[in-house]
Design a protein around this nucleic acid. Sequence first.
DNA 1: CGGTGATATGATATACTGTATCAAATGTCC
DNA 2: GGACATTTGATACAGTATATCATATCACCG
Lengths: 159, 159
Amino acid sequence: MNTHNHDHCIESALAHAEKRCMERGARFTPIRRKVLQLIWESHQAAKAYDLLDRIKPFDRGATPMTIYRALQFLQDQGFIHRVETLNAFVGCSHMEHQHQHEIMLLICESCQQIEERPAPNMIEMMHEEIANSSFHARRSTIEIYGTCHSCAVLPPASV
Amino acid sequence: MNTHNHDHCIESALAHAEKRCMERGARFTPIRRKVLQLIWESHQAAKAYDLLDRIKPFDRGATPMTIYRALQFLQDQGFIHRVETLNAFVGCSHMEHQHQHEIMLLICESCQQIEERPAPNMIEMMHEEIANSSFHARRSTIEIYGTCHSCAVLPPASV
DNA sequence: CGGTGATATGATATACTGTATCAAATGTCC
DNA sequence: GGACATTTGATACAGTATATCATATCACCG
């Protein structure tokens, strides 16, 4: 994850989002596009007020509402995930999937990069483990903290 | 979970906490005890500022710091869990366990009651699912939203 | 086209959540 | 009973998020 063409990540995410909006008749406005682009500038989670600071050079009148509205839209469309344990947001890297709630976020405590992974077997095991309490699960938030491969091998290269 | 002697829950939790503090040489001060008691007044998650309002009749000079310090202590001791998706706190009902991080919280969207359950198999499955990404997991937050048994059977009795 | 209703943005205020800091009080232990 | 650590008091402020009303833009249809 450390050695990749990150510009491609960004372009790909934006293109994918644009396509999805077309299909759904949703409006991928300049603000929404810019916020998504800013979020994708790294694989770390972006905080709302950091995004606000970073969008101001492009949108001088931006306020918290500007950001939170865009974030809400991007979440509704499944373009980003909220990282609950960080009060922050990260780009969704599995936009092609339907069950985007059945994922887990792997959060590296060393480099802060976040990897999204589908967790179908884990979710199935969860349903088994709650079966005898007769709880009907509808959605789940799964956030795992630890050390990513890169950081386990060598000191965190660049943050 | 709806039909139980809840006074017993509270007394049991307080007694258990007191015992643990004794063993560890930690101080179970009146403030800490009161906050834990208030949290245990229901099986729903308690918000910090609600706790503040509710402690004021007993501690007129209480401030946010009063609450947050007590919450920090109770968390450190493993007496409560933070519910990340709610910014709220709930009593820990498995104080006897050591691996108190390997749990999941089942949150009923109807009655808001929260059940804590150990999730050993789920955690093991998680480790399997992340093995090929060479991610080393250290701790996890798992919060499941859905419908509890009581609410599936009959309309939410009392909130 | 031009109107009309829905959607998006601007602008302001405010609510909610959580932490920093320094001083005073209390407990612990020799 | 004095020294040190822990807890609490008190004040300020940082960080996160939403409510609300006004204005602008878009989509669609007549």
